[in-house]
Design a protein around this nucleic acid. Structure first.
Lengths: 229, 229
DNA sequence: GTCTATATATAGATAGAC
DNA sequence: GTCTATCTATATATAGAC
């Protein structure tokens, strides 16, 4: 190697990070931790787990990479801290499932959309989705959340066969994928009302007919676990 | 990981790659290129674009990393070469869309499933899906393929509004995601027949009712572009 | 609590020997 | 056509100064 090995040696002069500031703790209460988490949520949402670096999170948050490490230990620590799910199913799900029998489809679609249209709630969900595609740890996190917190409880609350709840979830997730990830038209630009018109009957049907089109489904008896796990 | 700096200096003795062999071209016709592409398809399917390295592809294919570069130039070259889509929509789609009006749902679900159940055809699709989540190049590839090769042509062939075709695609993609990526039960273990029973009526409905539940849809006239893009 | 400096690993890519 | 060796960039992680 020639002379290009270590190009910089001075500190705080040739580097123009953000505002010039001496070392040591900043004055005032520390909101830095939350800023890092917000930046991390955005980064994980955009790039997924593996492609998001601690350095890029630090850069987005305007802090030093070592500070991120200081707060959360390592990348996985940042991830699990950032991925506290932004929807509380224990509050949201019973409210949805308590809808009148014939409006369960519309209620569910509207609730689902209201969460996804909200940028601050969509980001962490997208982060989990993106990361679950390529990272086993994220896949386990998402699978467990979906299964125990949403799907199984929805099945129990309404006595709907789990397979049909899965199908309804697939419909909603698939549409969100086309709308927000691939941004395929015209569904990416459709209004909430258009989507409700389009999807509510499908969701309604999954929750309406416990036996499917010709009664061949294996069903989960309402309020009772049929031993599927 | 190597224990010290440069542990090996000789060639073909201390290294036990696969079989011992001298340098230079191997005898016989060269199937190496295809082997590399097969390995690349598997790797991209498992890890996505960014997390797949040229070195890991070479390792999986049993060749030297430099050879991968020799054939395909760079990582993007390997990707586009590996991602030649394993389903030919110009052959498959008209066959599906020519089904009897009342069996379009079942036909489409069965065809879709037959592709996804086939490991060799599922791998490259999964690769595209995974990569599209985190990589813009892959997202563009997948969006263009889905839009021009599948969705718009399906809409034209049947005169179905594009928004409804999008919804049908979302249903299928979402279910495949739950089944093959997240492996959520019970849909991950459901049989083909169960899935046809479950999903065919939904797909059928999207292709059946051009006006939606109360006629509010914007429609695409058959064989004519309504100027949505 | 926040920073600089650096150890260590691995990525994509190139040059050139055989 | 296939390989070794190496360059450059960037990743995660750690040590310790202030």
């Amino acid at each position: 190697m020639t002379d290009v090995a270590r190009p910089r040696r001075d500190s705080g002069e040739g580097t123009r990070r953000r505002a010039k500031r001496g070392p040591g703790r900043r004055p005032g209460p520390t909101a830095t931790r939350e800023e890092i988490l917000n930046a991390a949520r955005t980064m994980f949402a955009e790039k997924g787990y593996d492609a998001t670096s601690l350095r890029s999170i630090a850069r987005a948050a305007g802090v030093d990479p070592a500070l991120v490490h200081h707060y959360f230990g390592n990348k996985e620590g940042v991830f699990t801290a950032a991925m506290r799910f932004p929807v509380d199913p224990t509050e949201l799900l019973p409210r949805v499932m308590a809808a009148p029998k014939e409006r369960i489809g519309e209620t569910l679609v509207r609730t689902f959309l209201s969460v996804w249209e909200d940028e601050t709630r969509r980001a962490p969900i997208l982060a989990l989705l993106r990361s679950a595609m390529t990272n086993e740890r994220a896949a386990v996190t998402l699978r467990e959340f979906l299964t125990t917190a949403l799907l199984e409880r929805a099945s129990e609350l309404r006595g709907t066969p789990k397979l049909r709840v899965n199908a309804a979830a697939g419909q909603m997730i698939g549409v969100m994928f086309l709308r927000f990830v691939l941004r395929i038209e015209p569904i990416a630009s459709a209004s909430t009302e258009e989507l409700v018109e389009l999807l509510a009957p499908t969701i309604q049907r999954y929750f309406d007919e416990p036996g499917g089109t010709d009664g061949g489904d294996k069903t989960a008896a309402p309020g009772e676990n049929n031993g599927h796990r």
